[in-house]
Design a protein around this nucleic acid. Structure first.
Lengths: 141, 141
DNA sequence: ATCCTAACTTGGACTTTGTCCAAGTCAATA
DNA sequence: TATTGACTTGGACAAAGTCCAAGTTAGGAT
């Protein structure tokens, strides 16, 4: 995420304080924030930043391939800055906690041509679901 | 979907005309409707049915394991009546069309214990993405 | 340095999707 | 066929996201 701003500037981005703050908030590998969470954290540093700008900026980062957009539940989309290392997500059915995980093999390879129906398939997103240790019923406690 | 109502009655469901209509709308294997689409189709048969009842009924069908709830985009959840045969989804990035697909192997098996972080993992949902034939750029046409 | 302007940001109105509730209705049992 | 608790209704509300006209500003041009 460090040189993200550099890459974006090279692509013609105008580097505003708002965009800088949003990019900083997304720093760190294991973050999966909603747009409103990003806005709250950004506003802690730059109080006048608007929701619209956060939505715009997140949308641009997604379009540029710098951030992934997740729809793991039917609620708010989440934004994952770890876009440059292939990974999947493990979601707790209890509390909603999300972890990046690395299954082996390429999930795309499991879909034979006959099951592609003429689509040009480019990606496979896997969401593993289950209960995290904190949400698991305790035995013998 | 035929004997669905029978199964539900056995589980103590009260069989109202509204529930019957919602179940009928969901009939057919390759349907992935939003709640509002279900409501529109249900209202064609039973004009006074309310949105609240459609939401309630869909939620109950999901809780009973008779219908799957999909969050393939950040928009409306979609409801898939094909809950009894394991399958995954292929989604067109252009128009949003959805197809049921059957990859080989069990996607759960690709996640080693070391990548489960103490979660009790019970399911893996795979969303394949790409362009459908209608959205694919045409060559030589 | 400063000017200029297209690009960016803002706040608020608006839309879509979903939830909640009090009051009315009805399916299924006795 | 009477009863009753489960179900349904419509409308208010909430959450998540989009859109727009007006104001601001980054960064190239001078």
């Amino acid at each position: 995420m460090d040189d993200l701003l550099e890459r974006l500037r090279e692509r013609g981005w105008r580097l505003t304080s708002q965009r800088r703050v949003v990019a900083e908030v997304l720093g760190g590998e294991h973050v999966h924030l909603t747009a409103d969470e990003v806005h709250a954290r950004a506003a802690a540093r730059l109080p006048e930043i608007s929701r619209a700008t956060v939505y715009n900026t997140l949308g641009e980062l997604v379009a540029l391939g710098e951030v992934l957009e997740l729809a793991t539940d039917g609620r708010a989309r989440r934004y994952d800055p770890n876009a440059h290392r292939a990974h999947q997500h493990l979601v707790c059915s209890g509390c909603g906690a999300i972890r990046d995980v690395h299954p082996h093999g390429d999930p795309l390879a499991a879909l034979p041509a006959a099951e592609r129906f003429g689509f040009a398939v480019t990606a496979a997103e896997v969401t593993y679901r289950g209960l995290c240790p904190d949400c698991l019923p305790q035995h013998g406690g």
